[in-house]
């Protein structure tokens, strides 16, 4: 379980966040550009530090100003997928996935076995020795996900996970992503601009405006709130998309 109650002063506004995510629950964060969605992920994974508050994950305190705890990013056991995927350009697919295992000084044989397992599950076995620069958007996303999941993290943070994937491939990738998240059985936060992501991947949706959660509920509940301008335009896009796809 993840519990966040934290605040941070950003350039234009103060980010105030209070949310709890249960085991196996997927929360989708939506909102305008610059509403602080990616910052929320960075605060949880430790790339940024909150000014105040407390973050706990699976019984561990990651941050607490009261207790003076700010656990380094590398010890948090959080899988963080960046929008650009941030695959290491100097390494092969295999070495990208093995990176975190090597940091943990795991024996070579076990690394080979675990990476091979991930590659097989993602149908990437043929690409093990290929440099990541030669992969398609979808393949990059799979490698980035495998790189995080091979470490069996306690939490998964996904920033626009399908934004760099070819539009035609997004439907299939979305279903695949949902299955992977379910298999992992851990709490997950997804930041997205895409309504379909919110509907298909999220158990719960939060709308963030200027650093604050202004709406929260199941995807259907949130979509009913048409008085909110963002949701109204968001839902429009859905109907439009639905019209196109069926």
């Amino acid at each position: 379980m993840l519990s966040v109650d934290a605040g941070k002063q950003l350039r234009d506004f103060s980010l105030e966040l209070s949310l709890t995510i249960r085991e196996r629950e997927t929360l989708v964060l939506i909102g305008e550009n610059g509403a602080g969605k990616s910052t929320v992920l960075n605060l949880i994974s430790g790339i940024l530090s909150p000014d105040r508050g407390e973050i706990t994950l699976a019984g561990r305190t990651l941050f607490s100003d009261r207790l003076g705890i700010d656990m380094p990013t590398e010890e948090r056991k959080i899988g963080h997928l960046f929008q650009s995927y941030a695959l290491f350009p100097h390494l092969s697919v295999f070495e990208n996935i093995a990176f975190g295992l090597r940091c943990r000084k795991i024996p070579k044989a076990e690394i080979a076995e675990r990476v091979a397992g991930q590659l097989a599950a993602l149908h990437l076995a043929d690409l093990a020795d290929v440099n990541v620069g030669r992969l398609s958007g979808g393949q990059r996303q799979r490698v980035a996900l495998a790189r995080s999941l091979v470490l069996q993290p306690d939490l998964l943070l996904l920033d626009e996970p399908l934004a760099a994937v070819d539009v035609r491939a997004q439907g299939g990738m979305r279903r695949e992503l949902r299955n992977r998240i379910r298999q992992a059985g851990i709490p997950c936060i997804i930041v997205t601009h895409n309504l379909k992501d919110a509907l298909e991947l999220g158990d719960r949706v939060c709308l963030l405006e200027a650093g604050k959660v202004v709406l929260e509920g199941t995807p259907d509940e949130v979509l009913q709130s048409r008085e909110n301008a963002f949701i109204a335009s968001f839902a429009c896009e859905c109907q439009h998309d639905a019209g196109n796809s069926y």
Binding site: N42, S45, G46, I47, P72, T73, E74, E75, R76, I78, G79, H80, F82, S84, A86, F88, P89, F99, G100, C103, R104, R147, S148, L151
Partner: peptide, 11 residues
């Protein structure tokens, strides 16, 4: 972002 990614992976 590569450095951030590496740190989230435990480096």
């Amino acid at each position: 972002i590569y450095e951030d990614a590496a740190r989230t992976l435990g480096a």
